[in-house]
Design a protein around this nucleic acid. Sequence first.
DNA 1: CAATTCATACCAACTGGATAGTATGCAATA
DNA 2: TATTGCATACTATCCAGTTGGTATGAATTG
Lengths: 187, 187
Amino acid sequence: MKDKLTEHSINLFEKKGFKETSIQDIVDSIGVTKGTFYYYFSSKEELLMDIHLGYINYLIEQQRKILDDNRSCKEKLFDIVYMLISNIKIQGSAAKIFFREMKNLNEERLALIVPKRDEFRLNVEKLLNDGIENGEFRADLNSHIVTFGILGASNWSYHWFNPNGVSTDREVAEIFVEMILEGIQAN
Amino acid sequence: MKDKLTEHSINLFEKKGFKETSIQDIVDSIGVTKGTFYYYFSSKEELLMDIHLGYINYLIEQQRKILDDNRSCKEKLFDIVYMLISNIKIQGSAAKIFFREMKNLNEERLALIVPKRDEFRLNVEKLLNDGIENGEFRADLNSHIVTFGILGASNWSYHWFNPNGVSTDREVAEIFVEMILEGIQAN
DNA sequence: CAATTCATACCAACTGGATAGTATGCAATA
DNA sequence: TATTGCATACTATCCAGTTGGTATGAATTG
């Protein structure tokens, strides 16, 4: 029941927003009552925190698997971009909530989320630095800013990417990584 | 007074969110009363619409100026990316509201905003196609998806770019456009 | 084995506070 | 004196969270 509440909440929060979705809306969508909700969650914000943690923890876990692999930096970069885009199929609604509704968490809770978000980004930055050191990437790279660029392109896809559309997640990832690695300039 | 109300609303909406900011909060921040607000706006949503229109119309106008110039596609691409990032100084709060609070507009109003957002994107896509035709950009480019990548990297910057930080808007734009044009791969 | 206790999982009704929007009033100004 | 630019007071509604339950089944005990 707790999972059911969370799943339905994610759908409703995505469509209508956190503040715009009442507990009543959530429990009505399942056919239970508010008592049930407060049996599983102590507050609406705790539910939101669960959603945030579910999203970011999954991403970090997947990233760790990729980084622990014994592959080139280029390949790892592709894997991370691909993972972010393919994750839209799995967690697209949660992604929207994560970036849109973060302001509804109090400072304490934010202090648990923000470092995880930063960790994910800094891992990419480190990957770039490793690639610069081993000669895979250009030596004159500003890895800090470039990381924001790569993650921006990838993360932004939750705004437009349709997992059931004509382009697959893999195609998009390939196009993105080719742009990032080789550029769009004609030779 | 109308501009003052709008400006203060933008600041409050950015910090607390649209639904979380009451009309009372807005008028209190200026020291007037709700009567004043409803003298200038017929509803809270109309104010939000004004903010959305102000943001997107400004972007389209700036983009038009860039595209009408007689410069290369590469230069125009740089100008657009630079414009988007430097715009954070001017309209950063409105940008956050634009992408975060769009769901608070009704269908009629959304139907006026979404085409403008699409227009901006399609203009970039056309710029890429022009560049492909005239040989500035690679012929095998998927301009549709690459456009999403470029705009993603640029737009995402409102999440992290600090106009008063160490990197200037111009530096970020230069790093982004170099990544987009030349790629990060070592030769 | 039968009675009792107890935790689990839910339900229904209510409260207190907040909030968008309205109706009306009033002073300055043009 | 009519309009502009506000202020005041009010209404109707909504909603998070609380309180006090009930049904069920499993474990405990006499």
